[in-house]
Design a protein around this nucleic acid. Structure first.
Length: 187
DNA sequence: GCCAGGATGTTA
DNA sequence: AACATCCTGGCG
């Protein structure tokens, strides 16, 4: 299996988000198949944090391509993004859902009573199942030991409007595997 | 099955 | 004040 390296994330955020569907997400003993992502562009996208958060703009400027952008949302959930940078456009890819592949015991241990297919069926759920929190913010996700992304079987993702945002709702920047049982919501 | 509402921290 | 969410409980 071939690791996705930093040059992948120098493509524009939309291409990155679409291309990650079907890839393997590896995190400290756990593996999940990426079935849902969203793209956020650091310029001209009113839904991107860079639009209204100076801290996010500083992050894009100072951090390296492939670094983890992790933030708390609604005071309850950690959301995991990867920094896209180095090409014509920059921004983030939000990982919205994974299908558990291995490390099931570890994930179930963190989410007792949760059905297997739901362990990663949402951006807040997957970080809890994987044990990702604010400590991860800013780390070099693609270079660090024991984590990263690997190419999987290629497929044609479906696209739709991003979820949970109030601006730029016309952009079809949410991508997914329409046949996955672990989507956060149907397309 | 669907919908309303609440929990809760960080940024601005 | 807003927010890139999730879970529960009330309905029928």
């Amino acid at each position: 299996m071939r690791a996705i390296w930093e040059d992948f994330f120098t493509q524009d955020p939309v291409t990155c988000a679409r291309g990650l569907i079907g890839c393997q997400f590896v995190w400290l003993g756990c593996v999940g198949r990426i079935v849902e992502t969203e793209a956020y562009d650091s310029e001209g996208d009113p839904a991107c944090h860079t639009w209204f958060r100076p801290g996010a703009r500083a992050f894009v400027e100072r951090q390296a391509v492939g670094d983890a952008y992790v933030y708390m949302n609604y005071g309850v959930h950690w959301l995991f993004n990867i920094l896209v940078k180095g090409g014509k456009r920059s921004g983030f890819v939000l990982i919205r859902a994974i299908e558990p592949v291995s490390g099931l015991e570890l994930m179930k241990q963190r989410r007792p009573g949760v059905k297997e297919l739901l362990l990663g069926a949402g951006p807040g759920r997957l970080t809890r199942a994987l044990g990702i929190d604010g400590e991860v913010h800013g780390m070099s996700f693609l270079r660090a030991e024991g984590c990263g992304i690997f190419r999987g079987k290629t497929l044609e993702p479906i696209a739709g409007p991003r979820i949970g945002i109030s601006r730029a709702t016309d952009l079809l920047w949410r991508f997914g595997d329409p046949d996955s049982p672990s989507l956060s919501r149907k397309f």
